[in-house]
Design a protein around this nucleic acid. Structure first.
Lengths: 241, 241
DNA sequence: GCGAGTTTGTGCACCTGTTCACAAGCGACG
DNA sequence: CGTCGCTTGTGAACAGGTGCACAAACTCGC
């Protein structure tokens, strides 16, 4: 019975920080930043948790993965925690970002304040349409897709944001990866294939809506999920092949 | 200090379909739709899984939650499966959607083809800026925020998309909920507080980037943990189709 | 009609993440 | 200086999701 451990490491856990925690840290960071701007000095796990929409125990466990930065009986020092979370997320470093595809969505992304204020600098705007080349968006000139490789190298870009149509996404992704980009944020409605070692995160607007539709349907139908009377359509037509 | 109370989302799944499965069904649906357009009649779990970027066992388990719609020794009928997944997600129904906030992002959303092609119809575009009222985007006239309640009732809108600045998001959300909207897709970088029974999903562009930055940092720092494995974590690479 | 080859559906063990509950630690106050 | 109240940090139980392996079931070829 050849059933070895397989030792497959499905997810990252070598850092000691679980993926689920990493996904929540930016939320904490945002809330803490807002608190700091309001001159709040310390915050308890209870208050911070409710502001972030999570349970207090979960929050404490999340923060404990970064180290013991709280004070018992008092809470967490807001500024210090901001710094520690930023540090854990790697935001103390400077990551130049390239946006490929300057359509409606690319426009929105280029103007999105949330990038710049978090330490991400948009270093290149790239589009395949020559008519767009030269256009200035958010103070940056749009360059043609041909220049992608040169721009990535010039600005040492390590994160690429794909906002192209689905048909172009895979090719753009391949080219990004070929010239050293190891992290991709994909807005195109397609599953990207990338070699190992490259991180891809996807943001899919229609998927989120579909998930909402599911819950909406469930609420509307009550718990009565009877599929009876199903299949009124003659959809099942496995034509002879 | 007025810390917003956030309703913890128990995310109870009473349908029998796990949340994790629901989140993947739209991906399967998209791949299947593409296959159908290519005149593919049946597909095996292996092929579908690799195209969707998941394991085949996981895919089969996901589909088994909808019922036994496969044929052993053959695979799944593409068209039939499209229908069944659409039905499970509630896409056979018609969900009018309102977009509040017609800035850069709202523009992009209004023009996003992924909505209309999945059965979602944008029934109202709303903005607080009077100068935008009357502007026509994607064939729909922008209306003023004052008309929100009337529009929601008129079009029987049950899903609201918030694309406003963060400062306005909570108020808009409250008003949507007050007139019966029970599902909200939030693009504003803020944690919305909603009463129980209301579903909120958030899409946060900067959070995704921060998660990427974390992984990027980890890769840059060297993954010299163990000489044997030392496999940089990555994304499953689906076979390109 | 029957066996060979496929592919689904699923029981089971593993693992990640969540929740509970409480001891340890810190500040305040008398 | 001791005691008390508050909050963190964490061990342990719990829940949900994932991957493996295999029996059941279907088609095809003969």
């Amino acid at each position: 019975m050849p059933v070895p451990r397989a030792a497959a490491s499905p997810r990252s856990s070598r850092t000691g920080i679980p993926d689920a925690t990493v996904a929540r840290l930016p939320v904490y960071l945002r809330v803490l930043t807002a608190l700091a701007e309001n001159k709040v000095l310390t915050v308890s796990s209870e208050a911070l948790a409710s502001a972030a929409g999570v349970g207090s125990a979960k929050l404490r466990k999340d923060l404990s993965h970064l180290g013991s930065y709280g004070t018992r009986g008092v809470g967490y020092d807001v500024e210090y925690l901001v710094y520690q979370i930023s540090r854990a997320l790697g935001l103390t470093q400077h990551y130049p970002v390239a946006i490929i595809g300057v359509g409606n969505l690319g426009h929105a992304l280029a103007n999105y304040a949330g990038f710049a204020t978090r330490g991400f600098q948009i270093a290149a705007l790239i589009d395949a349409d020559p008519k767009r080349s030269g256009e200035v968006i958010a103070g940056l000139e749009v360059r043609h897709l041909d220049e992608l490789e040169a721009l990535v190298k010039e600005h040492e870009i390590s994160i690429g944001v794909i906002a192209t149509p689905a048909s172009a996404a895979q090719e753009v992704c391949d080219r990004l990866v070929a010239c050293g980009v190891t992290s991709v944020l994909n807005f195109a409605p397609i599953v990207l294939a990338v070699p190992e070692g490259v991180d891809v995160r996807k943001v899919d607007l229609s998927i989120e809506l579909q998930i909402l539709a599911f819950h909406e349907q469930r609420k509307a139908a009550g718990v009565d999920g009877e599929p009876g009377g199903a299949v009124p359509d003659g959809v099942r037509t496995p034509a002879a092949s």
